[in-house]
Write a protein that binds this DNA or RNA. Structure first.
Lengths: 220, 220
DNA sequence: TAGATTGTTAATCGATTAACAATC
DNA sequence: TAGATTGTTAATCGATTAACAATC
């Protein structure tokens, strides 16, 4: 089973998918500054990426550039957005309305990155009934009902680690298909539920290790 | 210049450095449950990693295991912590005491991951003078003085994107050697300043793309 | 035209996975 | 002893980088 089908749709390397939003952010800024065309070497210089890499990444989107000139910045922005699916916006539910949850709710830029948090959930009486920006914090016991009624497919998990697995299971049962997991817990869920982990720990480790190496290096 | 020296100290692959904290988190939980020895296949099964990969990663730490038995869990935890430099704790300053900043301050686990946030900075009168947990929010204009007095080497950047570059430059001038950057801005800093980016956008892109692919797949 | 950049194919590099001997 | 797991070397895989023809 699971015939490991090399689907023409998922041959895009994950590193490419991760770099495209960085290009997008830069391109939007450049557009605001009145730039009309832009070349891969310029993007690469700005974002410290190999120019060939940039060309290859952009090629995946299907946008065509012109030799010696570069890419039309409007086409390129539109092309990347469409390629990444950012033109259509998913509704998302967030569970765990603590500081991190509130921070994510207040990231208005997410709306231009493919989804929008339309409600938050928690179980603490202190926060249920309050608002974060224009998002209401509801009790988690209405999550399932609302999720299926509104056909919400994306869930954001910013609860304490201890309840993460339990909450994630509830999410899956309520029809959530993709979970953005900010807890350090490795979630065990039915096949087909997509989990994207954003654990702070891995990043910390890289930072601390690099710093240690550099300080050691300077000593000798 | 920059003789690309293959230093024996930084031949550790970055993927390995990123996986080790995940093992560490799992091992600590297992220890709490009374586990005394643990094997690579078990760790791998739990965290969905290839067992050979786990063995290789653990080998970097220098901890020895015993065939048929596995690793002593105390030695392993201690070994990973020492290898990653988590046994000594750096002081860190955080700039931008908004929701995200507050969330990070309230992550007490960071203390066991190599650093500790000892003060927060902002420029808004609304937050300067307040507290986040037991961390005071000070005005950014005393950052430099305090950073050099206390020899703080790690800075966490959770400001709005617009001021990120400027704040980062100030950090570098104040002697900060490593910046954990949560803004989507590509920071341009003097050579030698380590930057670790944790941009939300890349993760969003991967999640949205996977979800799109799956929904498409189910349609046909 | 001259030359910079795109677009694509080939070479390199590094990480993952497989194979297997050593060993408890 | 038998067999599972470590530890290490070799094979594979995939991404990055280099090379180069096409082209504006």
């Amino acid at each position: 089973m699971k015939t490991q089908e090399k689907d023409s749709r998922d041959i895009v390397p994950e590193p490419t998918v991760k770099r495209l939003p960085l290009y997008l952010h830069f391109l939007k800024k450049a557009k605001e500054n009145g730039v009309l065309t832009i070349s891969a070497p310029i993007i690469g210089q700005e974002l410290e990426q190999d120019p060939t890499q940039v060309v290859k990444d952009l090629a995946y989107t299907g946008v065509k550039g012109r030799p010696r000139v570069g890419y039309n910045i409007y086409e390129l922005i539109k092309g990347i957005e469409e390629f990444l699916g950012f033109n259509q916006v998913y509704d998302a539910f967030l569970v765990g309305a603590g500081n991190l949850g509130s921070a994510l709710i207040n990231y208005p830029e997410f709306r231009s990155f493919g989804f929008k948090i339309i409600a938050a959930f928690d179980i603490s009486d202190d926060v249920v009934g309050t608002q974060r920006g224009d998002v209401n914090v509801l009790h988690f016991n209405v999550f399932k009902e609302l999720a299926s009624k509104l056909k919400v497919r994306i869930g954001i998990l910013t609860t304490p680690a201890k309840v993460a697995q339990e909450v994630a299971e509830q999410m899956a049962k309520a029809g959530i298909r993709a979970i953005w997991n900010f807890t350090p817990v490795k979630l065990k869920l039915p096949e087909g539920v997509i989990v994207q982990n954003t654990s702070m720990y891995s990043n910390v480790a890289v930072l601390v290790m690099k710093l240690n190496n550099q300080l050691k290096k300077n000593k000798d």
